[in-house]
Write a protein that binds this DNA or RNA. Structure first.
Lengths: 250, 250
DNA sequence: ACCTGAACACCGTTCAAGT
DNA sequence: ACCTGAACACCGTTCAAGT
């Protein structure tokens, strides 16, 4: 009898089951209470099999994050293809990141954990490679908008910078704001009076104005434009947020 | 015989010993390998005593972070009192955060961990309060610079914003850049071509230019000023970095 | 009043034994 | 070739017993 070799198909299916089981646990109990034992218990395979797919618990967390990035990527793409000036779409991409963090708070929390050094250091290199690749995809969407702005002469690239650097400017700005303000549950001094959507809007305008990316915020009512555009791009998502009592207040 | 009651003095001394032992372990083995067992083994008290001081492992991590913030606070203060325009000092405060992350990479890593939701959720409320308080102190230093810029009419506060919001703009910008670029060890696509000091410098100028905070970057050679100021404020620290092969390349 | 460390439940990971 | 789950080492946390 020839040795049966598992086809890639079913291997992937199994991996997918594990990832989904893990996400379920995290959604019910929080990342901080996530364990491999619980995963194994809620999946029809043994520990050994689970460990054949994943280096360990941290590796599972990164795997979840890698999947989440597909959702985020879709958000980015929808924002990027909106018809509007490049600058407006840049703003919209950042707001799509915010939408993502609000609609999928657990996934966003997983992302924050996945990025923390103590987790990343325990992951399989191939999974880190996938993570990097997905991240690059996201940055390329931003890069495309920047390139278009340059082509349309809305924006003149500073001599000392490349496209990747302008990408990173935008991304790190949004990441800083959203990650620092996303742990909203506590009643804490520091974040009092800060509204994530407003800070994101303001900072984005400052940053792009500082880059001289036209049209400047003084010449356009970006607030109105963003509100309108979001309703076009994310109608169902906004409804879902409103249902949860969350309303963007620009 | 009257029951001996431990004075606060020795309680604090003991807590300090535990914190230092923990930091030692983290410095040797990394946050990801930090355990309470190891702490107890390297300290002359029993498990029970350690747990009398700390809610658990995460609580110890936050305690370390709270202490580290004193060092960071000193860095901020030194940058803030440099003689120079408010805008220059704002830039310097952000660079002092960068200096801190380079000089104390382990402490900065601990900060990233401490901020991650899975850790924060397990800490004692009083320790979280201390964390918030220290954070507020940091933001107040930034706030003082902003206030001074307003007083000197270098900067007109946007009508829709308060001082805390401008503080947060600056802080989140620096935090986003430094935290995303600080896990430098891996050879990863995304961060290729990005230099943390340069991105921080550029983004800060964009942000402040966008805010119309005078003097604008076109009217001043901030690069030269920052280099000179850092040599004045952090001479020993820069030497230590250079010794480690790290040189700020603006 | 305070401290100790044994004890327990749980977790991560491995690998010899099975099919 | 692949899977299983017992086994092990370690970890976090508690608390009855000691001083």
């Amino acid at each position: 009898m020839s040795p049966r070799v598992l086809d890639e198909q079913s291997l992937l299916a199994r991996e997918q089951m594990i990832i989904e089981a893990a996400l379920n646990i995290i959604e019910r109990e929080g990342v901080e209470n996530f364990t491999m034992d619980k995963v194994v218990a809620s999946v029809p395979f043994s520990k050994g099999t689970v460990y054949k797919h994943f280096n360990g618990k941290e590796d599972v967390i990164l795997a979840i994050n890698n999947q989440s990035l597909v959702i985020l990527c879709d958000f980015f793409a929808r924002a990027a293809k909106y018809e509007g000036s490049p600058r407006e779409r840049m703003l919209l991409v950042n707001f799509s990141y915010l939408m993502y963090s609000l609609l999928h708070p657990v996934l966003f929390t997983v992302e924050l954990c996945a990025r923390s050094p103590s987790v990343l250091e325990r992951c399989a290199q191939t999974r880190i490679d996938t993570f990097e690749a997905k991240q690059t995809t996201l940055l390329l969407i931003i890069g495309g908008i920047i390139q278009e702005a340059v082509d349309k002469q809305h924006f003149k690239m500073p001599e000392t910078m490349g496209v990747e650097q302008v990408c990173f400017s935008n991304w790190s700005m949004a990441y800083g704001i959203i990650s620092l303000l996303s742990q909203q549950d506590e009643k804490c001094d520091v974040r009092a009076g800060l509204k994530v959507e407003r800070e994101l809007f303001n900072n984005n305008n400052f940053l792009l104005d500082g880059m001289q990316w036209l049209p400047l915020s003084g010449d356009r009512d970006y607030k109105k434009e963003v509100v309108k555009a979001l309703e076009t791009i994310f109608p169902e998502e906004l409804a879902k947020l409103a249902q949860a009592g969350l309303r963007l207040d620009l």
